[in-house]
Write a protein that binds this DNA or RNA. Structure first.
Lengths: 130, 130
DNA sequence: CACTACTTCGATAATGGTTGTCAATCCAGC
DNA sequence: GCTGGATTGACAACCATTATCGAAGTAGTG
């Protein structure tokens, strides 16, 4: 937790950029493949480490698919949720103040502390529906 | 998909009972170990199959932990969500009509179809907080 | 009961995403 | 240029889950 010294390296920058240039969710493996194709020399383990670090710092959102894969996506800071297309992976950032209030109220009622919640909506977007 | 004939076997019953007697979430591996300890002869693969079948039929709830493990819990039928304790795994079933409405509204707005959503709240319950 | 057509079981091997290992490498400051 | 800690990357190890496949159970029928 105590933010050990983190050095900005070529590899980390590459991962961050790859994420920043796409509004969609990507798996670590996809990102790794993409970077290699682009000519960036980077190891798979490093991609995982970079993503983990960014996730710890709150710079990326992480979503788990049903088959246990982790998807990453750069996120504007602030709390929000996602509407994700099963087909193309496109994601829409959504907000729901009502949901936030509801979540805290429910947890309060049951005496839960240190609470966090995940709200993800999966569906098929218009383009992929045909 | 067309609900092939499903036979109620000794093994399936065992899994169903093990789930029914506990209000907490358990992993497939835990259940398997538990059953074996109890003297029930059952294979791990069978436990997975049974859980999958029950999940398909909507008889159990499935939750994914952060480290990719699936947790199962018998559930009263009907759509609902969970408030899960990180410490002891105890789960409280919660309902939120408001959330349901919000989810469908948001997906409609963005033209998404065939939509499903997951809402899970994780926290620490009173007993585990000390 | 015998026969048959299926489903189900279970031991084991395979899968596949993720994480650990560890020597080589890089970088910052002296 | 040296030195020490952070970082990297190739590869092995992990581990939950899934596939495989021969064996065994189970209606249903006559």
């Amino acid at each position: 937790m105590t933010q050990t010294t983190r050095r900005p390296t070529r590899q980390r920058r590459a991962v961050a950029e790859a994420l920043a240039t796409s509004p969609e969710f990507h798996s670590a493996q996809q990102l790794h493949a993409h970077l290699q194709r682009e000519g960036t020399k980077i190891g798979l383990a490093t991609v995982y480490r970079a993503l983990q670090a960014m996730s710890d710092d709150g710079d990326v959102d992480v979503v788990r698919t049903d088959d246990g894969e982790s998807l990453y996506r750069s996120c504007s800071t602030g709390h929000h949720h996602h509407l994700v297309c099963r087909g193309c992976g496109r994601a829409v950032e959504i907000e729901g103040p009502a949901v936030e209030r509801w979540a805290t109220r429910v947890s309060d009622e049951h005496g839960f502390v240190d609470v966090e919640h995940t709200v993800e909506i999966f569906g098929t977007c218009q383009d992929c529906a045909d």
